[in-house]
């Protein structure tokens, strides 16, 4: 606490109403009297506050405006990022949906075009053999894996029997062993009785394996006089 007299002196000092000598004498007391020194410091701060009050208020208003502008810009950037992410997610979902649709639709395409006459080895070869009969029965009963094995045996016994080889390929195809089916059928020699049929099913096997280029290449080899030509062309258009 400072005395009433010191408060009066402090006002004279703060207003600059003291003589040089009185001012020096008053300030000399600050070192010895901390309460007076603190009061003088506060009085100076008061003057500084009063002189800058309006500027300080104006500065506060400008700060608030700068903050608002910055936060608005930040929100805009944030929203852009959010929307970019949302659109990215949407695109990803759409891509997945497309893949799913394609994936689900793909077997239909393969199945729709995978048609063939019933296997009739005995009729075509003119031989009545136990093995051939067994192959026909298994094929007709859609036991394709076993049928393929029997057909493989038949083909090994008579390598010229390309019909057995063709149907072995088809049996592999029907059993879902597309790789083996494609491998058996795509190398059928050109010009044979069953060549275009083999290429056609080899193409379907590649299609099932999602090897479109290879499928396209085989379908394009099917000549216009072939019974499979129109189906091959349709498939090519779809591809």
């Amino acid at each position: 606490m400072i005395s009433e007299r010191d408060k009066e002196l402090l006002e004279e000092w703060a207003d600059g109403r003291m003589s040089e000598a009185a001012r020096a004498a008053f300030e000399a007391r600050f070192d010895e009297e901390p309460a007076l020194a603190e009061a003088a410091r506060l009085r100076q701060d008061m003057n500084r506050y009063l002189q800058r009050r309006e500027k300080r208020d104006a500065f506060k208003a400008r700060l608030a405006a700068a903050r608002a502008a910055h936060e608005q810009a930040r929100r805009r950037t944030h929203m852009r990022v959010v929307w970019r992410r949302r659109l990215g997610a949407l695109a990803a979902v759409a891509a997945v949906a497309l893949v799913v649709v394609w994936w689900v639709g793909r077997p239909d395409l393969v199945e729709r075009y995978a048609t063939y006459p019933p296997l009739s080895l005995t009729q075509r070869s003119g031989e009545v053999e136990t093995l051939a009969l067994r192959a026909e029965r298994l094929f007709a009963e859609r036991q394709f894996t076993q049928a393929a094995r029997v057909l493989d045996s038949l083909h090994r016994m008579n390598p010229a029997d390309t019909l057995a080889l063709l149907y072995e390929g088809i049996a592999r195809f029907e059993a879902g062993d597309y790789r083996q089916a494609a491998s058996l059928l795509e190398d059928f020699p050109a010009g044979g009785n069953w060549t275009t049929e083999a290429w056609y099913f080899a193409a379907l096997a590649h299609l099932a394996l999602d090897e479109k280029d290879k499928a396209r290449e085989l379908l394009e080899k099917i000549p216009p006089h072939s019974g499979r030509y129109s189906q091959a062309q349709e498939l090519l258009q779809r591809l």
């Binding site: 207003d15 506060l42 701060d45 008061m46 003057n47 506050y49 009063l50 002189q51 009050r53 300080r56």
Partner: peptide, 25 residues
Amino acid sequence: ARQEALDKTFAMLSELCRNLLALVA
């Protein structure tokens, strides 16, 4: 902190005091 305290307490003074001190300043 001092300027903030001065600001808050200045607002607590009477209108006459605030006007008087502003005019002196």
